[in-house]
């Protein structure tokens, strides 16, 4: 069996922390399958990121530094990743489930003639009989899957693998000679970043999420901003809020948005639809504030408060501040 190759995810030339969950997954899979793992850093001017991931004890850190990889384009990247996997003898490729991982990995799987498991939650078994658990039906069902092909590709659910910590020894950094072919069919035409001073949703230890009960942008911001400020929290939202243009798309928590599992999740004026719960029900402590005592969100809340959010949240903030 060949090794595991973890694809580092970067944003504006910096390592995205979500990568550390894939490294943790790779360590676990490597131990169970009895193979080694390496980390791949692709892009343009990737030296800093390579140095950063060289402290996790991987067998090697491979860089593919090419101007054609400056902007992420799925087809070009998939070719480079698959080429690198073949070159370094990796039978397994993994990255974290993010929009980057979701977009890229299936194409890599197709290139490698590999089965792909989406959103891996755990690894079981050993080299002869590896099994993986993954969520289906908005997390209402956990499937156990096996891959029948010799090669396999994984997207890794970040909330299920505690970020790897450096300190397992330095990895040699090797510049890989991989052909990067841009077929010219896609032109990268720009990126409108969501500007926010707040922590990333998937990295924050406190997430406060608001729903349609906050009515409009003024209502949402007026309640959620001070609440987030109180804890240095990230703000999340329901699909209803995002659809209404009240919050940007990348704040959506749920089956089709982001999956989070912070220490504290405060759900404000949101009903707790199946699709929303899928993205937050593994948070450590869940608080729900909703004026409808029948709201489904109370079924997952450790502490539920039936109250009008416009009254209760400002009071809550006052009281917490008083200490």
């Amino acid at each position: 069996m060949g090794d595991i190759l973890v694809i580092a995810e970067t944003y504006e030339g910096k390592l995205r922390k979500v990568t550390l969950s894939s490294i943790a997954f790779a360590k676990e899979l490597a131990a169970k399958a009895g193979v080694g793992y390496g980390i791949a850093v692709l892009g343009k001017d990737v030296g800093d990121v390579a140095a950063e991931v060289a402290g996790f004890g991987a067998k090697a850190v491979y860089t593919v530094d090419d101007p054609a990889l400056e902007n992420y384009v799925a087809g070009t990247w998939a070719g480079a990743v698959a080429g690198l996997a073949e070159q370094v003898g990796a039978d397994f490729v993994a990255a974290t489930t993010s929009t980057f991982g979701r977009d890229l990995l299936p194409r890599v799987a197709a290139r490698l003639n590999a089965g792909m498991v989406s959103d891996v939650m755990s690894v079981e078994g050993d080299a002869g009989d590896l099994k993986f658990k993954r969520p289906m039906w908005a997390g209402n069902v956990i499937g156990t899957v096996k891959v029948t092909t010799p090669k396999a590709v994984f997207s890794v659910r970040g909330t299920e693998f505690d970020p790897a910590t450096p300190g397992d020894g330095a990895s040699p950094i090797q510049a890989a000679q991989v052909t990067v072919a841009d077929d010219g069919k896609v032109r990268y035409a720009g990126f409108a970043a969501t500007v926010s001073e707040r922590p990333d949703l998937t990295e924050a230890s406190v997430v406060v999420a608001g729903g349609r009960g906050l009515k409009d942008k003024a209502g949402f911001d007026g309640i959620m901003n001070p609440l987030a400020d109180l804890f240095g929290a990230a703000i999340g939202a329901t699909r209803a809020v995002v659809d209404a243009g009240i919050a940007p798309n990348d704040l959506q928590v749920g089956q089709t948005g982001k999956v989070v599992a912070p220490d504290l999740y405060i759900a404000v004026a949101l009903s707790g639809a199946i699709q929303h719960l899928a993205g937050m029900k593994n948070s450590k402590v869940i608080v729900a504030i909703n004026k409808d005592e029948e709201a489904p969100v109370f079924s997952v809340a450790d502490y539920g408060l039936v109250a009008d959010a416009f009254k209760a949240v400002p009071e809550f903030i006052e009281l917490v501040k008083k200490g």
Partner: peptide
């Protein structure tokens, strides 16, 4: 290439409580 060999329900969260006031919540 990929087969699902078993299906199970996720771990349910232990039931929580309702608090009566903001003071109690804090």
């Amino acid at each position: 290439k990929v087969v699902t060999v078993a299906y199970e329900a996720p771990k349910e969260r232990a039931g929580g409580i309702k608090v009566k006031t903001v003071e109690e919540l804090v």
